[in-house]
Design a protein around this nucleic acid. Structure first.
Lengths: 372, 372
DNA sequence: CTGAAAGCGCTTACAG
DNA sequence: CTGAAAGCGCTTACAG
């Protein structure tokens, strides 16, 4: 059998040897070959060596993983379901750290990590969740109303929810987003800022772009967005200020460029904010950019607080005041809870993981730079 | 059947319905149920709806992916083999961008991306490559003498090599590391620097840490390391300087902390370098740190050139002069060549992808800061 | 439009 | 220590 490549060259289709052929070559049964790979104690070392020698001769690289998976009822991989195309996840340092944690948990258990091919641009491919050969799913970064959550659950394989509304019988990991956001806003308010602005990433799957009114904020289906706004709001109202007067710009993504645009809009308002709360460090990086373009110094003319505490946050100029959250741990915990379920255990959902305000150089009292 | 979790709670083992059970429920054959999912044109819409209704009733989420994979002879995932524990890959921005590209190629083809669980700390787990349920491998970031390369090839499934010595019949993608490194060194030399220092990441799997002599450099098995050193060397020798006198510090990893340590050693030498070439931006970030600790300004007292041009490079203070390489494209090209092979094509290996020196603010003539 | 049959490549009690 | 047999859950020509 021959295939013809695009370039016209012929290509021999590779036929892999099977366990049967190896067995025939050695003159034993398939069971014995299987044992050679899976249960060395079930046959003599000599016979085992003969099996391996025959395998080498035939180019047999060991039992086919898919066939083994079917027989054993497990695929050997954990899946991660992500809202956007995978390439977006890799462009977001926070998501990457989360994946780092999940991958560590998978590795500890000797499992692979399968990134489920997600929704391509227009027209998602929900089948991907149904067709992923995995033993369980970690659901990350999906809107609360995303049908993929149900599709994953319908597979009837273990699932761990991350930053999702809790569901009976499904372990989940949550973050103290409210507390972290609240601390961030309190910090700014404590410094004396009264004119705040907020740069948010998407509030719902229909990411709008533009100022988000109170209703839009309330209906946010991306849990971290909604929770962080709630935290800011609590701090603001506690001080007696009106939350409704604080502009919240909903960016359509979580990249510095979008933070730049958002901050541009906020800074153009009159009166312009003396401090900006960003829902992520990526966005905060964009706020820095916007300030620089307008000749505003941070923190003298504008205070900026981020969220996430990604590695770069401590290296910016000035270093970014932000809210630390344990991204890697979040992934690790989620991954381990999934692995626990795979072992038949029923892990408890932990208390929300703590966040912590990290005060660095990007915040100061308003007008700190003016000589007056 | 009951499982008892660690916490003592009982857990019902979930039994998933099979295609047979759905068929029985509807009163048709398994083939018809299969057709309902895979070939809608093979049965009436009404019957198809009845099948889906029965599936819903029984909690059947569609054909089991593993069984389907066995039957069809494909698993629906491409694998990435990485040298270190996966968590290392996620901590390296360059590797992350590469994965971004591969994931994009996988997504385009509707395939999942399986990160093969790698070598845990001590005692690698070479079985992981043999046991990964994938249709092909992208080999990334392995030393030239890493046995995993052969293990992957022995699977007799399509493989794409990235930055590896070429092998007959195996498509590969290479980078113009030599050219990029050469341009970086020429830039420094052109500025008038004569006292250079190099901060390298691992040269071989036995990452040593410490100054690397010429033999160690020549025997480097991490291809990008060897090639970049070659590029630096070519530029240096062209100027008539002796490469052997330039200290090359081999760090044991690719994190800023290790660049910091390495630069510390180089800067403590007499005479100390006026410029440092780092094999990655991550390492260069550490060189910045080391300079700052010693009260040296960049670029006045010390010029620094990185490699990679990760996003952060343009945001450092001063912005980092570095060598751009198309990380995402590298992954995309590798991924697409793998997908092409999966379709029976025989893709040509492209010419080495171009690199490009990006001059920013971290380089200047030596002594630019002194008033003399 | 539907079904019977074969088989993908393996592992697992079980019997000897 | 080894093998015969059953079966994991599905898809695919093929026949009707």
């Amino acid at each position: 059998m021959l295939h013809v490549g695009v370039n016209g060259r012929k290509k021999k289709a590779i036929r892999r040897a099977t366990i049967k052929e190896v067995a025939a070559e050695v003159g034993v049964s398939a069971a014995t070959v299987s044992n050679a790979y899976n249960r060395p104690d079930q046959l003599s070392p000599q016979l085992r060596e003969r099996v391996f020698a025959a395998a080498r001769r035939l180019g047999y690289a060991g039992p086919d993983p898919v066939a083994r998976g079917l027989r054993r009822g497990r695929s050997g991989a954990v899946g991660v379901v992500y809202a956007d195309p995978l390439s977006y996840a890799f462009a977001d340092p926070a998501a990457v750290m989360f994946l780092e944690g999940v991958s560590q948990a998978a590795e500890e258990a000797g499992l692979g990590l399968l990134l489920v091919p997600a929704p391509l641009r227009e027209g998602r491919n929900p089948k991907a969740v149904g067709e992923a050969a995995v033993d369980g799913f970690v659901i990350y970064c999906l809107a609360e109303d995303d049908p993929l959550v149900d599709l994953a659950l319908e597979r009837r394989i273990p699932v761990v929810l991350v930053e999702q509304p809790p569901r009976e019988g499904v372990p989940s990991v949550e973050m103290d987003d409210v507390g972290g956001a609240r601390a961030a806003a309190e910090h700014l308010l404590g410094l004396g800022h009264e004119r705040l602005g907020v740069v948010s990433f998407e509030l719902g799957r229909d990411a709008r772009g533009g100022l988000a009114d109170l209703e839009r904020q309330r209906e946010a289906t991306y849990r971290p967005s909604r929770l962080r706004l709630e935290g800011y709001r609590a701090a603001v109202e506690e001080t007696g200020l009106a939350w409704g007067e604080i502009p919240v710009y909903e960016a359509t993504g979580n990249a510095p460029e979008q933070g730049d645009i958002a901050a541009g809009v906020l800074l153009a308002r009159e009166p312009s904010p003396t401090a900006i709360l960003a829902l992520s460090d990526q966005l905060a990086l964009g706020v820095f950019e916007a300030a620089k373009k307008r000749g505003l110094s941070v923190p003298e003319d504008l205070s900026v607080v981020g969220f996430d505490d990604v590695p770069e946050a401590s290296r910016t100029d000035p270093p970014l005041t932000t809210v630390y959250q344990p991204h890697v741990e979040k992934g690790l915990v989620a991954g381990r809870m999934l692995v626990a379920q795979l072992r038949g255990e029923e892990p408890q959902s932990p208390a929300p993981l703590p966040t912590r305000l990290v005060i660095r150089g990007s915040t100061a009292p308003p007008g700190a730079g003016r000589d007056e």
